[in-house]
Amino acid sequence: MKSLKKMGMALALTVACALAIPAVRAQSSLTGAGSTWVYPLVAKWSATYQKLTGTEVNYQSIGSGGGIAQIKAGTVAFGASDMPLKPEDLRAAGLIQFPTAVAGAAMSYNLSGIASGKLILTGPVIADIYLGKIKKWNDPAIEKLNPGLKLPDMNITVVHRSDGSGTTFTFTNYLSKISPEWKEKVGSNTSVAWPVGVGGKGSEGVASYVQRIPGSIGYVEYAYILETHGSYARMINSAGKVVSPTLQGFQDASAHVDWANAQDFYVILTNQPGADTWPISGCTWQILRKNAPQATNMQVMKFFDWGFEHGQEMAKSIAFGPLPPSTVAAIKSYWKRELGYSI
């Protein structure tokens, strides 16, 4: 009985301590959730931010769909989505959004004989692969684009996202623009009815499946390809040139949109004109609730403002392009205008 009593007391003590500590820590932690696209950036920023200010920004990369759902439900302080919400949807739900940084998605593939960057694809070919019309790697359509390569007689295993994803939105938005059949059959959203393929959870899941399954192809945010030393395919953009996914390519796409005048920063970066523009460029928007406690929103704004001011080198190191200074200024006045207060 004595040992049981001791156990019980120890347990009660642990729980009491656990309950007491929150009072101390509650002020300096934030929860955000959403896009896996922007996760490498937010994770890098928050690790440094925590060392500098003590505030913990806990970001769960559960997919843009999750970010939108959770901020609507008010269960997180900010939601991150690669699909910008339309201004009328923002109004209806009492939300505001602002962009973070630009980046791009690329097609990652697993073909043992073909080094990274050697494979060239176009939008229509990718659409046909994802529609299930092109089934093998040595299909004439792919061979035409890659005359110098020996493509194997292997089935293409298509990998897509199984969760609600802004990367999916960016990818399917691009496919809808260049393939009328895709636009009609599947459409564009954070979660679509994929005609074929295997679903990975998060960009991490897709990158992981592509790593494991020979003959597979998947779309992932470029930072994941960098981190995992995966193989990416080059593409032919709207200007007809063969381009690689580069920071410059993403920023060129960004230069062609009018950030400052877009209502609620609603812009789409896919298939932009320009000689070196990367076709599947995108951005992540941070979504806040208007009627969240002022202290919470202020903490979120402080964090991202710090990122804009001091986090650009970190961003560039993982191929995230900073927003132009005019856009950052526009964001700050947007905060003031929409919330009534700002940092």
Binding site: C17, A18, L19, I21, P22, S29, N58, Q60
Partner: peptide
């Protein structure tokens, strides 16, 4: 409970 990349003992957070 979801998950939390930081150390937390707050029972009312992830």
């Amino acid at each position: 409970a979801l998950n939390n990349q930081f150390f937390s003992t707050n029972l009312f957070r992830p």
